[in-house]
């Protein structure tokens, strides 16, 4: 459905994307996950024909993003990171505008947006600028969908959105998926990985991993431990100074720890922590989450750069 081969893009001296290769299957929710400045928006702009790549090529629904850009623009939906509907038009006028631009009507594709649009329909005479954040998103998603696109590109739809609204947004995407639409979505929130069928992790313009969220977690190389003691402050520093420590990261109330040895010497670590004034020590082996994988892959990337 989307085929990206060797895409590279630089802005002056800054290399925003380096040799990106991704195949997105029809009907899947594909998540591009990484922090600000990783290259997510640059890639979406190339795929939506708004930016020319320096190297490589990309096809969306078998159309080339450079050569066939006019044809392609009729067939996808794009929701940019910033709210970009007409704030002085009403909810309904915005939707009508988008329908007519693409030569269709609201009634023709109403079934696609019904679930989402009916939640904001009571406010259809309100100007879009006066909607709450959550309602703006629902309207934007309705406008993106009204011409029945085969693929939609959503650039950070959940950034700055509270956890509950984020959850609701993902529920909407899962409903759209049931209509057979392919969804390409970017996010800086690692915990949203599990909402996607497959994900790509991106950092500094480089892809670090592409797979299902489960497979990425399974590829995590080390045994991971969650550690907590009665002395929260100081635990991080003490563990970092521990000779056998490989990685030490704060995760909520716990510390996520990996050891240089394949087999962690638990009693030794226990003794070390006790000697540093910790008690009620709990060391528990845990399965990693995507953020653990991202942190580990970032470490690998750094080592490669130094090598």
């Amino acid at each position: 459905m989307i085929s990206i081969r060797g895409i590279g893009k630089s802005y002056g001296k800054i290399q925003a994307l380096k040799d990106i290769n991704i195949e997105v299957n029809a009907g899947e929710i594909f998540g591009l996950i990484g922090p600000d400045g990783a290259g997510k928006t640059t890639l979406i702009r190339i795929l939506t024909t708004l930016l020319l790549p320096d190297t490589g090529s990309a096809q969306v629904m078998n159309l080339d993003v450079v050569k066939d850009f006019k044809l392609l623009r009729r067939d996808f939906g794009y929701m940019p990171g910033r709210f970009s509907l007409y704030e002085d038009l009403t909810v309904e006028e915005n939707l009508e505008l988008f329908a007519s631009i693409f030569g269709t009507t609201i009634s023709e594709n109403y079934h696609l947006i019904e679930d989402i649009y009916k939640q904001i329909e009571p406010f259809k005479t309100r100007s879009a600028g006066k909607l709450s954040g959550g309602m703006k998103q629902k309207l934007a998603l309705s406008c993106v969908m009204i011409h029945k696109p085969g693929v939609i590109f959503l650039d950070e739809p959940t950034t700055g959105v509270d956890p509950v609204s984020r959850r609701e947004f993902w529920q909407m995407l899962h409903k759209l998926k049931q209509h057979g639409i392919t969804i390409f979505v970017t996010t800086p929130y690692m915990d949203e990985a599990s909402q996607c069928d497959r994900i790509a992790l991106i950092q500094n313009g480089q892809l670090m991993s592409i797979d299902t969220p489960n497979a990425i977690v399974e590829q995590y190389k080390d045994d991971l431990y969650a550690i907590i003691t009665d002395k929260r402050h100081g635990l991080l520093q003490d563990l970092r100074r521990y000779e056998s420590a490989k990685s030490v990261f704060l995760f909520g109330s716990h510390i996520h720890y990996t050891d240089k040895q394949t087999q962690l010497d638990k009693p030794a670590l226990n003794t070390y922590l006790q000697a540093h004034g910790h008690s009620q020590i709990e060391i528990r082996k845990i399965p990693p989450v995507i953020e653990d994988c991202f942190l580990a892959l970032m470490g690998d990337l750094k080592e490669d750069a130094h090598a």
Binding site: D36, Q203, H233, E291, L295, M298
Partner: peptide, 24 residues
């Protein structure tokens, strides 16, 4: 006010260490 939005997970943690230090 939402000081860590969008930063990578390593920087986010560095940032919280600065916060903890400042509070101390």
């Amino acid at each position: 006010d939402e000081p860590t939005g969008g930063v990578d997970p390593v920087t986010r943690r560095d940032f919280w260490e600065m916060i903890t230090q400042t509070a101390a």
